[in-house]
């Protein structure tokens, strides 16, 4: 049995929407200058471009600054508990394959408390998009090191640095079976919007890691705009090569880094038995 797609294709819905059709009008709680504003703008633009109406889209999130995002969009939304967004999003997508399901969150939510769910969402490969706004810090609790924080970053809770090798979400995603892996930057909302549309169209689990600076607790991340650059990966479908590149990369290469050919989870069956059939099985 194989889970490989015969012909990876994607559907292209088409309606006419404007980015502002996807804004709820609620004022974000984010600090001025937060990278997440750029991600919100990119999502609005991407969905307008993608063409499905707001009521057919569900934004699912966990807990953290970035997880507040569903409330700022005009789509359906689900703001759950810390780390479990992908499980809820998977349940929703499997129950309602007609909906466009997008999970969003931060690095603590997705890679630490939700790390197991991240691995298994990649492995399960449901047809949904996961956007992580990575600022390498727990912002909502005011500045603790996250799984992606550099080992020497000084903080109250880990003076002198946490001293641990940062988690590499892209390598983990590729290894665990994600079907689409990309990196974007909140400072380039148009480029990010293109990646989001691309990810939505690609079958299976699409993961976009977005560098989204926290200028309140990590002001040095303002320099990220000088550090990002387009990826030079040209062998997107080679899993081993993509993994090698992602591991060797300094974390600032942007673009699609891996594109797989795994089929997503098969659709549920059409009912083929009745409750009467079930009950007859209890005859001794």
């Amino acid at each position: 049995m194989t889970d490989t797609l015969a012909n990876p294709t994607a559907t292209t819905p088409s309606c006419v929407f404007d980015a502002k059709d996807f804004a709820s009008g609620a004022h974000p709680v984010w600090c001025p200058g937060c990278g997440d504003f750029g991600v919100l703008a990119a999502l609005e633009r991407a969905l307008a471009k993608y063409g499905r109406p707001p009521h057919e889209v569900v934004l699912v999130s966990g807990i953290g600054c970035s997880s507040r995002l569903p409330g700022y969009m005009s789509t359906y939304g689900f703001h759950g508990v810390h780390g479990r967004a992908l499980a809820a999003a998977t349940g929703l997508k499997l129950a309602r394959p007609d909906l466009e399901v997008i999970a969003v969150g931060g690095d603590g939510d997705g890679y630490s408390i939700g790390g197991n769910h991240f691995i298994h969402a990649c492995r399960r490969n449901p047809d949904l998009l996961y956007v992580v706004m990575d600022n390498r810090v727990y912002g909502m609790t005011k500045g603790q090191p996250s799984p992606t924080t550099e080992p020497d970053w000084d903080s109250d809770i880990a003076p002198g640095g946490i001293g641990l090798r940062p988690f590499n979400p892209l390598a983990v995603a590729i290894a665990a079976g994600a079907n689409y892996v990309a990196r974007g930057f909140s400072g380039d909302p148009n480029g990010l919007a293109d990646l989001i549309v691309d990810g939505l169209k690609w079958p299976g689990f699409a993961f976009i890691e977005v560098l989204s600076p926290c200028i309140t607790f990590r002001p040095e991340q303002r320099d990220w705009k000088k550090m990002v650059r387009p990826s030079n990966i040209s062998i997107e479908q080679d899993r081993a090569a993509a993994t090698a590149l992602v591991l060797a990369d300094d974390g600032f290469s942007l673009g699609v880094l891996y594109r797989g050919d795994r089929a997503s989870i098969a659709a549920a069956l059409k009912p083929e038995i009745t409750m009467g059939d079930v009950e007859r099985e209890f005859a001794p």
Partner: peptide
């Protein structure tokens, strides 16, 4: 769906139920 743990299992269920 066989969840990766019980945390996932109940959230899978909540997601599906939210979907109706």
């Amino acid at each position: 769906v066989l969840g990766e743990d019980e945390l996932a299992s109940i959230n899978l269920v909540i997601g599906a139920s939210y979907g109706g």
